[in-house]
Write a protein that binds this DNA or RNA. Sequence first.
DNA 1: CGATGGCTTGAATCGGCTCAAAGCTTGTGG
DNA 2: CCACAAGCTTTGAGCCGATTCAAGCCATCG
Lengths: 247, 247
Amino acid sequence: MLKGDGGRVNPVIGKFERFVRLSPAEHQAIEALAGLPTHRVPARQDLVREGDRPTSVFVILDGWACRWKSLADGRRQILSLLLPGDFCDLHGFLYQEMDHSLGALSRVRAVEIPRQAFARLLASSERINQAMWWSELTSAAIQREWTINLGQRSAFERIAHLLCETFTRLDAIGLTRDGSCEFPLVQQDLADATGLTAVHVNRTLQELRRRGLIRLAERRATILDRPALEELAEFDAAYLYLEVRRR
Amino acid sequence: MLKGDGGRVNPVIGKFERFVRLSPAEHQAIEALAGLPTHRVPARQDLVREGDRPTSVFVILDGWACRWKSLADGRRQILSLLLPGDFCDLHGFLYQEMDHSLGALSRVRAVEIPRQAFARLLASSERINQAMWWSELTSAAIQREWTINLGQRSAFERIAHLLCETFTRLDAIGLTRDGSCEFPLVQQDLADATGLTAVHVNRTLQELRRRGLIRLAERRATILDRPALEELAEFDAAYLYLEVRRR
DNA sequence: CGATGGCTTGAATCGGCTCAAAGCTTGTGG
DNA sequence: CCACAAGCTTTGAGCCGATTCAAGCCATCG
């Protein structure tokens, strides 16, 4: 548990401001989180394990993490991707025991907000409280979309959809450039996220590349033909609620 | 939009009291919801459609509903089951547009809580607010479990798991008797919930029956060998957080 | 009673899996 | 700077779980 350099919690502010306009005081309350202990977790290591008794809420400042859970015989499912600005586990706020694990996919920097401090933050401002609801409801919408992905879409569509969604989420927080973004998942991770095998993911990626839709190499992804990819995946960003403030 | 008979909102109270002990005033605030318009929706009809602009939150008083969404070519996914006491769509509370539909699986009775009234209820009591978070976080946990179901489990395990989960949820609200419960889903619904085809669901159910694990007929399900079914499904009720108050 | 919706069965097919081996990168230590 | 290990990616061949298509059955109901 290394104390970090107290980097700014910008991703959260940027995220919340997509939904509500924060007052200077609210702004400050969130910036203050940067004073809390910062963890640096190396890639492929867990932040929290299933069964742990959480006493705090984590916020990703930097890097990619995921929720995951596995079955007795080793089958593993990645349940969701956690990107900078994401709160991972309000669970810690109310529950006694984690029902899943949190793992780092790349090197991750995260702040740990103790239960009490988190409760105080929520209570301090109606707008922050609302923003937190909005954040959580959006996660729920993403989780539903994954449910459809796994339940109804073909291997092709699943991977295309995952790429569209992830790219769009990154884009919203300013982490893409020229249609390209970091992509720390290896093929086995993609397999665990899409309910396929790594071998089949490999063949599917080849086909996506052959069709000129994507480039995926050296931990980077590039969307070469976004309209075509989104059509293939039947991707509609509406469920991500990226432009809520425009009401 | 028929006005109902103002039946009691008991399922919500029972549910919340699994998590917090409500004061008489809080009790009353929730009972008061029964004064709101009650809808009676016939089986197989939608309460809310994707794209609708929600202005209220629904609570199921009676009967089974589901969230669902379909792809352009007609593939349909049931995203979750909504049972008595469940809030369907806090979405309506914050969002402009439904990203999925709400459908009745059996005859359903539901109250409609206008945005404002819902916000007032949340603001009126810290405990109710917490209970609502708990309710929402539990839904999220269920949705994650469905993600694993669809991503990693075989047809057999999927159906077994769905039965275990649903039975346990019903049990918690007193809607089972002697290992048996209502079960309004037809095989096509089971297929849409588990990401299988109706034909395969049929064959899988036969095998479950042949092994003496379940009975399923005339809109009723009976679990004949619960331990065996739970083991087969690798079902562990922990994620449903049924005994939170015992802290 | 015919129509309708749900359940069951069979046969052929296929998308994705398994197993196995080989090529490629990347990082590490000597 | 090389050598080797470890982890990732790629390829091939055979297989299997689940799908598709099609037909028949059974109950319910206007």
